[in-house]
Amino acid sequence: MVSSPPRPDARAGGGAARQTLRERMLTALAGDPNGTPDWVRALADGDDTGYFAEDGAAWVVHGGMGTLVAGIRALLVQALHPGALAGVHDWSRYREDPIGRLTGTVRWILCVTYGSTEQAQRETARVGRLHTRVKGEYTAGDGEARGYTADASDLVTWVHLAFADAFLRSHQLWGAPIPGGADAYVAEWATAGKLMRVPAPPTSEAELQAQLDGFLDRGELRRDERVDEVVRFLRTPPFTGAMGIAYRVLFAAAVASLPRRWRAMLGLRRAPWPVVTTTRLVLAISQRALGAGPRAQDFARQRLSRLAQAH
Rank of each mutant, 00 (worst) to 15 (best):
E123T: 14
S4C: 13
D217K: 15
G293L: 13
P177V: 14
G46N: 06
R270M: 02
F163D: 10
R295C: 02
L208G: 01
G115F: 05
V198G: 12
R122A: 15
L26T: 09
L75N: 03
F239A: 04
E229G: 00
G244P: 00
V40S: 05
V249C: 10
G244E: 03
D38A: 14
Y185C: 08
A58W: 08
G128A: 09
S92C: 06
R235C: 00
L266G: 01
G104C: 03
P294Y: 05
V156C: 09
Q19E: 13
R301N: 09
P179R: 14
E220L: 15
A190V: 03
Q119A: 12
T67C: 13
R303Q: 07
G83V: 03
V2H: 06
T103D: 10
A166N: 09
E188S: 14
Y185P: 05
G241W: 03
H311R: 14
Q209N: 14
G293R: 14
A86P: 11
A10L: 10
T236V: 02
A246N: 03
L290P: 14
A184I: 12
D154W: 04
R260L: 06
K194C: 04
A86S: 12
R269M: 01
P199R: 12
G56Y: 07
T236D: 00
I99P: 01
V227R: 00
F215L: 13
R107H: 09
R41T: 15
T27F: 13
A57W: 11
Q211D: 15
L195Q: 11
W174F: 13
W158I: 01
M65Q: 12
F233H: 05
V230W: 01
R303G: 02
W108V: 12
L29S: 08
M65G: 10
K194I: 08
A310T: 10
D45R: 12
M65T: 06
P259A: 07
L208M: 08
A246F: 08
P8L: 10
M25Y: 01
G13H: 02
I285P: 00
L258T: 04
V127N: 02
L130I: 06
G66M: 08
R7Q: 11
V275I: 06
H171I: 06
V282L: 10
P5G: 09
L266K: 01
V127S: 07
W108H: 11
A74T: 11
E118I: 00
A53G: 11
P6G: 12
G175Y: 06
R301D: 09
M243R: 13
M265Y: 02
A16L: 15
P33E: 08
G193W: 09
G141S: 11
D38M: 00
S92M: 05
W273H: 02
F163A: 04
G291H: 08
F299S: 03
R306S: 10
M1H: 01
V275H: 05
F163V: 07
L212E: 13
W59T: 10
D154Y: 02
G100E: 06
E205V: 09
G71F: 13
L234A: 04
A246M: 10
W189V: 15
P6Q: 10
R288E: 07
G50N: 07
R73M: 14
Q19R: 15
L258S: 05
E123Q: 11
G241S: 11
A164R: 03
R301Y: 03
S3L: 04
T36H: 02
Q19Y: 12
A17F: 01
E96D: 15
A42N: 07
T27P: 00
A271F: 06
T157P: 04
P237M: 01
Y114A: 05
D45C: 03
N34Q: 14
A30W: 04
